[in-house]
Design a binder for these strands. Structure first.
Lengths: 208, 208, 208, 208
DNA sequence: TATGAATGAGTATTCATTCAT
DNA sequence: CATGAATGAATACTCATTCAT
């Protein structure tokens, strides 16, 4: 086979990642052998190794957050006039994305990736970077909401950011174990928390 | 060699689990070989296999939620006069437990266990059972709070329960990646959410 | 299988080396696969790896010069009253050893080892050490013979030592390619060289 | 692409051999992959295979004694009036050639080729042929010297020839391991052996 | 019960070679 | 002639598990 277009190569690469993805969803990273992958790909072992240097590289290739898009949204939320509203819109985007991802069983991959991140240096760094960026942005947004008197100023803004992250990743975990989880209802709850309408006024009235 | 007391056997069993636990924290389930385990145990391979039928059994043995105690607390919370208060106390207990567990690096084990649950039938069943029980109890408590007009009745009680579960497991994930996470501050945020004091009145005043 | 005597283990080790030796003689280091070795051993792959950490270790184990014995002889030759006679006896021993070794096809292994020494650091060091020791000793012996007026003092003693080494290794090479080479006749020539009786007086008489 | 001149093809062929030679000197035949070779050549795998049918053919191509020239010299030495003198000149030529070859690290290739000859039929035949021709010629020359009373007639002429071959190949081995070996000094020793001046008269005088 | 030597299916990866373009 | 993607048999080595002592 002669020289081949970059597109051809990217397609092949994607083909391998897709095949690996299906294997990983079925059997996990460790129960999936290279054999499984290249049989699923309908390629020869050598062909797979033309596109990836190792199994680990394939694993890394198989989970890709839409990092760019969400980072962008976080950034713009930082400068919004109404930080909580921007945060809500952002979460709306993220949770909707999760709903789609769940249909592709991405949570199954990602939950395994968390475990991998505890073992593998490169994974860990990627994961930490991701978390830190999100935490920083979210904490900043919360901080601004606190300045505006919209969020209890006594709360640690980073802790609030962590709780929001938990609401996201906790849902991802639950979706991994059960893809039928009703994401819409869950989102409604998250919004209620952000809006302060989770707890009813009745009691507050009593307290007042 | 003569028959040996049950206590002796239990001790040996625990000794193996402890050794395995240390290995798993260090290197994860899959990067830990049986060799690693029996070297850490100072036992022979055959000896280990006298107490566990397989590596998988050891893995299963190595993560044990304090299932009994928390179930009990959930049960009693179900019948409390002040469900939200009972829930808060319950979460207080669970989060404090997590703080302790983090010192033993248990979250590192549990996060891996989530990944394992996606692959391994038995793990999955255990995990689902656990989740379902917690979800059922928490949803029931929330339902009662809704009946009492303390929580927005429009929210799906199970979705609320899921969000609470997320706040717990999301923290566990963050602790696995970074054991220095400030659990106290996080708990304060969770309480603020439950009490409805997360969002400030200022804006609500405007709405009124 | 329980704990086993050291003798047992040494025997197994030797059994593996012997099997590998036969394979190497047949097919060389590189054309011999681990599979060949453990099939020749009638052992399982794992069993072989209980005794050797790698194929390379087996290769190293498979060629063992009688280093100790010959070193000893070299040493004592250094202090002999009649250095050339001692050297001759020494060579007698070495060549006879080679004759025996040739029956076991050892030269085939050693010639390959020379090639390996050019590639592999550890081999090279071993080989160089061996050569240096022999060269030093032989050069010293020649030096003493020169002092006694028995060898042309204009010759570089180390170069003489090198030529003696060549007579040895050159024979080994020839034996590797053809085990039927007549070692006795060859030894006679070497002795004639050492004794100066290789070249006939006839011509010298003419010169006188 | 159009048909191409023979010169072009020969150049390409030589280019590949040169590249392979460099690789073999560095890493040996077996640690050198075809990949190494065609990367060193700056050619594609397919291109290399247009000029050589296999890796083995490249290996064969990479070591080429100046067979023709030395055969010629041997032949003429056979018919010389002064056989020993002719032999000395011949060796002079061969050793000088070795000195040059050592600068190109040819001994490193040849020592490996000896090992290869033990494994590979074609190599073995080539090598044996070479040896036999040399041995036959050298033995014949020695025989003539014996007839002329210049060499001890009791020595087996073929054994003498073998010892001379050893002096040559033994030096090659030593040069492979250490290219700094002083070839000039070594040649002086070889000449002294041929001339019978290696051993001093002093002792002989005593014997007389 | 404890031992640890032995098992052998399984692993990721390599690499000489081919052939469609 | 040149390209280089594809092939796939072969490789060294691992590791959960067994079982004779």
């Amino acid at each position: 086979m002669p020289k081949v277009s970059d597109e051809y190569k990217l397609n092949r690469r994607q083909q391998i990642i897709d095949a690996a993805y299906r294997c990983f969803v079925r059997n996990g990273f460790h129960e999936t052998s290279m054999r499984d992958i290249y049989e699923e790909t309908q390629l020869s072992p050598g062909a797979v190794y033309n596109y990836f240097r190792s199994k680990e590289e394939i694993i890394e290739g198989s989970f890709q957050f839409d990092y760019e898009r969400s980072r962008e949204l976080f950034k713009s939320a930082r400068h919004s006039d109404d930080p909580l509203k921007a945060l809500e819109e952002l979460l709306n985007f993220l949770f909707t994305g999760l709903e789609d991802a769940a249909r592709l069983q991405a949570p199954r991959i990602n939950v395994q990736a968390w475990g991998q991140a505890l073992i593998n240096r490169r994974f860990q760094e990627t994961m930490n970077q991701l978390f830190d960026v999100y935490l920083d942005d979210a904490a900043h947004i919360i901080g601004r909401a606190q300045e505006r008197g919209e969020v209890d100023a006594n709360l640690d803004s980073r802790a609030v950011a962590r709780s929001i992250l938990s609401l996201y990743f906790g849902l991802e975990l639950q979706l991994a174990l059960d893809p039928e989880v009703n994401v819409r209802n869950y989102m409604t709850v998250v919004k209620a928390i952000l809006r302060g309408s989770f707890r009813q006024d009745s009691e507050k009235g009593q307290e007042a």
